[in-house]
């Protein structure tokens, strides 16, 4: 097996695993009972899913700059989702929505 095939297999594995986490995040969004628990599912599972997809694509990238661009995309999504998640939770709390127990 050549090195390129190994890279392809690793890359495919990471992409599929990333997709699995996106699917799990969506399952959580549907099954979890309230806004707070749903935020848990969306932020954490999707960030990991995107991280794995970015890693899978980085293995196929043609230059280091392209890897940097992918990493930058992941970082920006990470920052945006962490703050969006905090703001949604805060807005829900200020509206008096109690957590499901």
């Amino acid at each position: 097996m050549s090195i390129l095939e190994v890279v392809d297999i690793v890359s495919a594995g990471l992409l599929i695993l990333g997709g699995v986490f996106f699917l799990a995040g969506t399952v959580g969004l549907l099954r979890f009972p309230d806004v707070y628990t749903r935020l848990h599912a969306l932020t954490k599972a999707d960030n990991l899913g995107l991280g794995l997809i970015v890693a899978g694509l980085a293995a196929q990238a043609e230059s280091f700059a392209a890897v940097g661009k992918l990493a930058l995309i992941w970082l920006l999504v990470l920052v945006a989702s962490a703050f969006a998640c905090h703001l949604v939770a805060r807005a829900a709390l200020r509206r008096g929505i109690g957590p499901w127990t």
């Binding site: 995040g25 099954r31 979890f32 954490k44 990991l48 991280g51 957590p99 499901w100």
Partner: peptide, 24 residues
Amino acid sequence: WSLRGGVDVAWRACAPSLPIAPGM
């Protein structure tokens, strides 16, 4: 820790018994 966070929530979302006990 973010890897653990993703795995943890994915497992909880997919387990049939929905093993969560939320609180503040």
